[in-house]
């Protein structure tokens, strides 16, 4: 281990590993797979943008694809899927407030 006490304090990640705690590890095949999926979903969005007339359903499709892409980025690129459950939930559960905010705004615009 490094002799610098400061480094040792900041070394929790690898110390956690040494103590048998879960540490997220990534693998290249998964990363490329997620990238290709994100790329294809964006391509699908473009197909809908040009091939489909503007409508409520098109907007719903766009929003669904967007949420799907966002979930992919958070789960795989940001490693939340492989993260400790307590950290993952302390990040994901507060997002319910965003759902609440969106619901409030929709209600507001209905007047």
């Amino acid at each position: 281990m490094s002799g610098n006490p400061h480094d040792m304090v900041n070394d929790g990640h690898y110390e956690a590993e040494a103590h048998g705690l879960h540490v997220p590890h990534s693998n290249k095949a998964e990363i490329w797979k997620v990238f290709i999926v994100l790329f294809l979903l964006t391509a699908v969005e473009f197909v809908f943008a040009f091939a489909m007339e503007k409508s409520v359903w098109r907007t719903v499709i766009f929003l669904a694809l967007t949420v799907f892409k966002a979930a992919g980025i958070v789960a795989y690129f940001m490693h939340v899927k492989h993260e400790l459950k307590r950290l993952a939930y302390s990040i994901l559960l507060p997002l319910i407030f965003i759902v609440y905010l969106v619901a409030l705004i929709i209600i507001e615009t209905q007047g």
């Binding site: 990640h13 956690a16 705690l21 879960h22 400790l84």
Partner: peptide, 13 residues
């Protein structure tokens, strides 16, 4: 201060 919070370093949390 402690080394870990929620199982990861404070910096990451």
């Amino acid at each position: 201060g402690r080394k870990l919070a929620l199982g990861v370093t404070y910096g990451k949390m």
